[in-house]
C-alpha cells in the first residue's frame, strides 16, 4: 500500500466499479452511486478489518502478523502515516460524492452514512488492536 501507483490504481478501481454499476440498465444514477459506496465500503471492511494475517507465509515473523488485520499491519502499526490518511479519506470522499448525486435523499443518506461509519470507526487509532 506504500508502493508507487497504488493510490492511482485504487481510484481507477473504484471508478471502474462505478462505471460497471452505472452500465446496469435498471439502476438510476442515485442507486449506482449508493451501490458504489456500499460495495466499496463492504470490500474495504472485509479486506482491511475482517481478514487477519497475510495471503502468503510470513515465516520470518514467527506468525505474529497472523493475528493482525491488514489495517493494523500497515506501516508496522505506526499511526497517522500517509497511507492511513489516504485510506481514511477515500470513504469520506466517496460518501460526499454519493450524497451529492443522490440529491441528499434521506434513505440513501442513511445507507451511505452507516456504511461509511462501518469503515471509519475501525480505522480510529483508539481501536488499534481492539477486538
Amino acid at each position: 500500500l506504500n508502493s508507487r501507483g497504488i493510490w492511482l490504481s485504487y481510484v481507477i478501481a473504484v471508478t471502474i466499479l462505478h462505471l460497471v454499476l452505472l452500465s446496469i440498465p435498471f439502476l438510476n444514477v442515485a442507486q449506482a452511486w449508493t451501490l458504489t459506496n456500499v460495495v466499496h465500503n463492504i470490500g474495504n471492511y472485509i479486506f482491511l478489518h475482517m481478514l487477519k494475517g497475510t495471503p502468503w507465509e510470513t515465516n520470518w515473523d514467527q506468525g505474529k502478523s497472523r493475528l493482525l488485520t491488514h489495517w493494523e499491519q500497515i506501516d508496522f502499526g505506526e499511526q497517522f502515516t500517509t497511507t492511513r490518511k489516504f485510506l481514511f479519506l477515500a470513504p469520506v470522499i466517496l460518501f460526499i460524492l454519493a450524497s451529492f448525486y443522490t440529491k441528499y435523499d434521506p434513505l440513501h443518506f442513511i445507507i451511505n452514512l452507516s456504511t461509511m461509519l462501518l469503515v471509519l470507526i475501525p480505522k480510529l487509532p483508539q481501536l488499534h488492536g481492539v477486538r
Binding site: L19, V20, L22, S23, I24, P25
Partner: peptide
C-alpha cells in the same frame, strides 16, 4: 456483458 450493458445504457 458489461460492455453490452454500457453500450445499451449509453444509447438510452
Amino acid at each position: 456483458v458489461v460492455l453490452a450493458m454500457s453500450v445499451y445504457s449509453t444509447s438510452v
